[in-house]
Structure formats: C-alpha cells, structure tokens
Design a protein around this nucleic acid. Sequence first.
DNA 1: TGGCATACCTTTTCGTTCAAGGTATAATCC
DNA 2: GGATTATACCTTGAACGAAAAGGTATGCCA
Lengths: 114, 114
Amino acid sequence: MAQTNPPFMSGVPELLLLRLLDQREMYGYELVRSVREVTGEAISLGEGVIYPALHALERNGSLKSRRKAVGGRTRVYYSVTSRGQARLGKLADEWRRVRAGVDVALEEPVGAGA
Amino acid sequence: MAQTNPPFMSGVPELLLLRLLDQREMYGYELVRSVREVTGEAISLGEGVIYPALHALERNGSLKSRRKAVGGRTRVYYSVTSRGQARLGKLADEWRRVRAGVDVALEEPVGAGA
DNA sequence: TGGCATACCTTTTCGTTCAAGGTATAATCC
DNA sequence: GGATTATACCTTGAACGAAAAGGTATGCCA
C-alpha cells in the first residue's frame, strides 16, 4: 500500500530544503517540523525523505554541514553553498514554469465567457 | 542521459489529460500538440508519455475511447467518464494544495520588510 | 519514389518519494 | 529505578511513473 509516487511532489522536497536552508542553518529533525509548519500543514515530509535528500544535496555540493553538540546531543546543521543557491534559482524557475502551465490549463474553458 | 525524472512533473500528465478531455473529446496525437499549445509551450509531453497515460486512465475507468475513421486514417478518441471527473476533481484539489504549500515557502523571507 | 506529417504503439531506463524499521541518548513521569 | 516519550540520526526496499528512443503503417505532396 506504500503510496510511493504522490502527485505533484517530485522535486518538491529538494526545492523546499534548499529554500528553507537558504534562510537559515537547520538540522534534519528540525526541517521535518519546519516544512510542515511553513507550508501550513499542506506539505509534510517524513525523515525517510528528508535525510536521504540532505545527503544527496551535500554529495553534489549544494549543501554543506557541520556537527554541533547541543545539550549532550549531536546535531548536523546544514547550510546552502553558492552552488546550492544556483540550484535553488533554477529549481524555483522550473517550478514557476510548470505552475504557470498547469494553472493555465486549469482555468475556466474559453467558451465559458459571454 | 535520459532525463527521466524532471522536477514537479509527477501527476501533471494525468491532470492535464483529464482536464483537456473534460472539455472535449480528443485523440492521442492531437493531445500531444494540445498540451503544448494550451500551456503556452511551458509543458510538452511526448507520445511516450501520452499514450501509456491514456491507456492507464482507460484501464482504471477514468476515460472511455471510440475508434473513428477520418480520411482513411483511424483515430482513437478519448473522453472523460464520471469516474474520471471525480478523479479530475481530486487531482485538481491536490494540485492546489501542493501549489499553495510551495508558494508559501517561496515567498520573500519574513525579515525582509522594513 | 522519396520524404514528411499523421497516427498509433511498446520497451527500457532511472530517479524519486515514501513507509517501515533501526539505533541511541535525554527528558519526563510515576 | 523503570517505563515511556521526545529528540536525533540513519537505511532499506518497493513501487511508481515520466521520459527517450525506437517501431509500424498510412496518406499526402512534389
């Protein structure tokens, strides 16, 4: 029953992570909560999505990380590199393009007017 | 090099096909052109996407088809069933939800104002 | 008769999301 | 002191589905 390919979600985790981390440094567990809050519960990403995504983004140079001990616990904080900012810009453009195309198609039929 | 997983496209072909066919009956080859036109070139779906999608939608009862001979050539015209209309409604809602979530995240940072 | 547009189709690849499960420490509550 | 919950990290496996590339055949036009 694993809902593996929910509609419209491809690319969304990457875009959201880059966007949130571009505003401030955060750690994985925090991002899980943050995504839910920021999107007004509209979008919720589990740890099984966040962590692999963070690792992939770090691997390709879009993010860098540093470990930080906080109250006996270790957190891995991520921040966006300049490469990541470029990637974010491209992804955001791509998002706007797709959004525009879908929205146009979803508008009322041409023949509906007077 | 096959760009198999472009960002933000998951669910989009299904949504567009249902939407276009809900306005009028069309055939596959026509839909390839229509998607491009309607979206103002923003979205372009190849035959390798359109045909399998149409078949899947017919299989699950969202579309029905009829063959029609036009000038010696045979076309397969598709139209939306009531089941397909329900599916279209759900998908459109889903689209709006995801769009809202992403757009909120993409807005200017809170700290940017005066 | 060669080429192009129409019109249908399948096969294969591949990335990506997601659920589920797994480890370990700190805090809380009884 | 023992159990439970929250924090915090992580991996594995499955399944989906978009895309490219390739394949067939007919009609039209020069």
